[in-house]
Design a binder for these strands. Sequence first.
DNA 1: ACCTTCATGATACGTCTGTATCATGAAGGT
DNA 2: ACCTTCATGATACAGACGTATCATGAAGGT
Lengths: 206, 206
Amino acid sequence: MPRTVDHGQRRAHICNALVRTAARDGLHAATMRSVAAEAGVSLRLVQYYFETKAGLLHAALLHLEERSHRRWNERLAALPSPASPRARVHAFVAEAIPDDDDSRVFHLLWTSFAVLAMTDPALAEQPFVSGPERLERQLTDLLTEAHADGALPTDQDPALEATRLLAVTHGLGTDVLTGRLTPQRALVVAGYHVDRVFGARSTTDT
Amino acid sequence: MPRTVDHGQRRAHICNALVRTAARDGLHAATMRSVAAEAGVSLRLVQYYFETKAGLLHAALLHLEERSHRRWNERLAALPSPASPRARVHAFVAEAIPDDDDSRVFHLLWTSFAVLAMTDPALAEQPFVSGPERLERQLTDLLTEAHADGALPTDQDPALEATRLLAVTHGLGTDVLTGRLTPQRALVVAGYHVDRVFGARSTTDT
DNA sequence: ACCTTCATGATACGTCTGTATCATGAAGGT
DNA sequence: ACCTTCATGATACAGACGTATCATGAAGGT
């Protein structure tokens, strides 16, 4: 066999180029050629590794989801070892608010894809349901655990609270990205929300 | 002077065509030609009434915002005459959830524009700040009023609550449009949220 | 040494887009 | 009656886009 390069690595490199381009100029500006230029490769190579543009977008979406998943787990791991459910929930909302460049890019891209998926059912139906749903399940488990610990008032419904948490953080993220809210303000609101879900304040924040 | 048609009416007609097209196939599919076809006019006319495509988008955005504003006021007026603050807040969230075709279109378009505005600061900066901000002010006033009435627990901050309401409804709307939530489920979560903001249940829903 | 297969470059094609240009009805002021 | 101005149609143009085609290095199996 002739020389063989690491396709996975190459694909990741191009996906990152897509992400950078789209973060700068919007997903609509992420063309085959602009992505190739950003990645420093020829147009042909983008075609080679992802047959079609749909394939490229699909791969980029998966790439994005995996990246966010890793980020969220790293953030959890960085917490002081026996972290309370409340602290972990707070870590979640803090991670979800676009305050640094990376999370800003993630939120922008994810929302861009979500908007596309609203009218194009063929576009990667999977990540838009399974991705957030896994998060939602994690949160539900977390809140159920908090129930058992007595950290969460018993009249709060874990499943509803998880959905609500996802909704409020996503909404705040969009407000930040459209410039309606500063990241700081969004964090305040998110913290306020966590305070309302759990009872009175008692924990440190991260 | 020669024959003169009602420009405003004509522009509204074309804007509606844009909205229909974009609602069906996504905002990226709303080209000058497709909008002209949908409106049943020639390409030239779209150019004539809106010099450029940016002009068309700008006008459509304003058109959209005005339409939503009217809808929201009609919904308020339809409430039994001395509506409690809680009922009015509930009416707001019910209106914001995309459960019928019209609100679905509105949410989709608004989010599409919002995504564009995230990377294109020139795109109608106004409506994305002033529009929601007016809503937020209305909600804040409503909640402050509820404070005075004793309908809202005194430890709830009206401004924070208003921001949170906007965020949660917008987040839920996106979840509905991506198919992650049914409108019914989103309404349940929204009602749950209103229940948590105000104290125990006591009012009818609309 | 050669041949097969992988990897990459250069370039061409057809389509769609936004915008510009030229032309021409239609109607009121004078 | 005529001329000016509004309104609209037909069409052309240059560029960008996704995709396809052809060609050619590069390297390991035999």
